[in-house]
């Protein structure tokens, strides 16, 4: 029942969009019998696009719309949705500022807003640290490795390997290694870096940094490989010409290589930001965001509330907030960066 209703609502935007591009003139090549041909064409289009469109509308668009709807209700998700009570934007105001009711504000601030802002802060810190720490490290490694040396292809292969592992196994691996009795903890202690009071992961302060380290271990290979792919597209003549003119290695990198792989860097930054907003698996596997939420993310908070507290409405509000963050990132990226890169490409006369 709900599914039918769903695909109905889901088609809405599509038909709107259809109308908006009605101006583009349809061209029908090789038309012998125009009418029959046109009907046949639409039939073919339906056959080709239909399955994908149907699956997409039912399993992507419809759940998104339902998430938006649920987020406006007070709903114990163990009960059928019919029993839910419409509360407008209360779930959102609770997350953002502990609700609007002065009487409950203090309690709700502690219960809703505090964990929410803690998670948002962690997501934001991961984004910022990716740009400030992962990016420069990956860039330096890529620039240094961007030359011929013995074993080059194996080195690239190995550096990229963690990216293909699941966050689950990568997370569990580090959980073992960084256990208070684990080998890496012991090794670090042997060279004078003793683990913090609560352990590498559970310490309220150090836990976040350990988490960031693990995320970086898994994902920095992607940055390096993308940057290397970008660097291989820089014409070697440019670098040669610059060094003949007496530019130092650093000057060549700084003036030629880094600016020329700008588009690649921006794309990586976008992927990294979107990934950071939606980070879930790793934080959940380590310890559901940490016992004091030291590395909780919006997604872990959402799943925690949805499955442990069965607050379907509030969990959905968090989902929508997460979606809004992703959308803002995507739209900012598209308007700022793509216009610039495409403009540059068009300028080259491609």
């Amino acid at each position: 029942m709900t599914a039918l209703e769903a695909s109905g609502t889901g088609t809405g935007p599509a038909t709107d969009a259809k109308a908006s591009v009605a101006g583009s003139t349809p061209v029908t090549p090789a038309a012998f019998n125009p009418r029959r041909d046109r009907r046949r064409k639409w039939f073919e289009i339906a056959i080709f696009v239909g399955p994908a469109l149907l699956i997409f509308l039912v399993f992507v668009i419809f759940p998104m719309i339902m998430a938006a709807r649920y987020s406006l209700y007070k709903w114990d998700s163990r009960q059928p949705f019919e029993l839910a009570e419409f509360i407008g934007f209360d779930n959102y105001t609770r997350a953002l500022m502990g609700g609007t009711d002065p009487e409950t504000k203090e309690i709700f601030w502690k219960a809703y807003a505090e964990p929410f802002w803690n998670a948002v802060g962690n997501n934001a810190q991961i984004i910022a640290l990716s740009m400030l720490i992962q990016l420069p490290i990956a860039m330096i490694i890529a620039l240094v490795l961007n030359r011929k040396f013995p074993g080059r292809s194996s080195v690239r292969l190995i550096i990229f390997a963690p990216y293909v592992l699941s966050e689950v196994v990568a997370g569990l691996m580090w959980l073992m290694l960084l256990d208070p009795r684990g080998p890496v903890t012991e090794m670090l202690a042997a060279i004078g870096i003793s683990d913090p009071a609560g352990g590498w992961l559970e310490d309220p302060q150090a836990g976040f940094w350990t988490f960031f380290f693990i995320v970086s271990w898994k994902y920095i290979g992607l940055a390096i490989i993308l940057f290397l792919a970008g660097l291989s597209g820089v014409p070697p003549e440019l670098q040669e010409a610059a060094s003949i003119d007496g530019a130092s290695w650093w000057q060549v990198q700084w003036r030629i290589n880094i600016p020329l792989i700008g588009p690649t860097v921006r794309v990586w930054a976008f992927l990294s930001i979107i990934g950071s907003i939606q980070l879930f698996d790793m934080a959940w596997v380590l310890n559901k965001g940490g016992s004091t939420g030291q590395y909780s993310t919006i997604a872990t908070l959402m799943v925690d509330i949805g499955t442990q507290r069965n607050d379907g409405g509030y969990a959905s509000a968090l989902a929508i907030i997460m979606f809004i963050f992703s959308m803002v990132a995507a739209i900012t990226y598209m308007t700022l960066v793509m216009r610039r890169d495409n403009g540059a490409r068009a300028g080259k006369g491609a």
Binding site: P13, A14, A17, P26, V60, I61, P63, Y70, S316, A319
Partner: peptide, 28 residues
């Protein structure tokens, strides 16, 4: 093919990139 609504359908698939499974998990 050229047909009415082509760009609209494509745009909708493109917008799908912004809907990660994480966001839709409970309704799904």
């Amino acid at each position: 093919y050229s047909f009415r609504g082509r760009e609209g359908v494509f745009l909708m698939f493109t917008a799908g990139l912004m809907f990660p499974l994480t966001v839709a998990i409970f309704p799904l």
